[in-house]
Amino acid sequence: MGTLGCVSDMLQRDKENRALRKIGRERMKETRRRLLEVSASSPSSHLSLEQLEDIRKNTLEKEELERKKLNRAFLVIGCIVLAGLLFLCLFITCQLT
């Protein structure tokens, strides 16, 4: 009698797994269809080599400018923290004397 429950559980799990595989296949088909629609509707590149080089150059310049701004921001924040620590040390020293 004990194996009957195990067999029915196994059959139930097998039935559920079949349903999940079917749902997964349908989801994959839908995803593939959407990707094909997007790739079909996207325009092909008609940019010349000069235009691509200009885009690349502008991108590199923008990245360099952003890097410089970030470095400046870190420098300013570091100076403010350092000044605050110095002020705190002077305040503590004045309180001890």
Rank of each mutant, 00 (worst) to 15 (best):
L86K: 03
P43E: 08
V76H: 12
N58S: 15
R34K: 14
L82D: 05
T97P: 10
R18E: 14
S39A: 14
K57S: 02
L90C: 15
S45L: 08
K29R: 12
L86F: 13
L75Q: 15
L70Y: 14
G78N: 01
S45I: 02
R32I: 11
R34W: 04
R32G: 05
L60M: 09
E50W: 06
I55S: 03
F87V: 09
T97K: 09
Q12S: 06
D54P: 01
L36V: 07
L60A: 10
K22Q: 09
E37C: 09
L36K: 14
R34T: 09
R33P: 00
E61H: 02
C89H: 14
L11N: 05
G2L: 00
Q12K: 06
R33N: 01
C79D: 01
K69S: 07
T3D: 03
L4A: 05
L90F: 15
S8L: 15
V38G: 07
L52V: 09
K69Y: 02
T31S: 12
G84H: 00
R67Y: 01
S48F: 01
L20N: 08
E66T: 01
V76M: 07
L49R: 04
I55R: 06
I92D: 03
F74R: 10
E64K: 14
D9K: 09
E50H: 07
S8E: 11
L47G: 08
K15Q: 11
L75K: 13
T59P: 04
G5D: 10
I92W: 04
V7I: 11
E64L: 12
S39Q: 13
L47P: 02
G84W: 01
T3S: 05
E16A: 11
N17Q: 15
L88R: 12
V76Y: 07
L88I: 13
R18V: 09
R25D: 06
R34S: 09
I77G: 04
S39H: 07
K68W: 08
R21E: 15
E53W: 00
M1C: 00
H46I: 12
L35V: 03
L85V: 04
K22H: 06
E30K: 06
T31E: 13
L11P: 01
K29G: 06
T93P: 02
R32W: 07
T31P: 02
K22M: 11
L20T: 05
H46R: 12
L82T: 11
V76A: 11
G5C: 02
C89T: 15
L65Y: 13
R56S: 13
L65F: 13
C79S: 04
D9T: 09
D9M: 07
L65N: 15
S45R: 02
S42H: 08
E61Q: 04
L60Y: 01
L96W: 02
A83P: 00
L11T: 04
R56Y: 08
N71Q: 15
M10V: 01
A40G: 12
C89E: 12
T3W: 00
S8W: 10
R33Q: 02
L52Q: 07
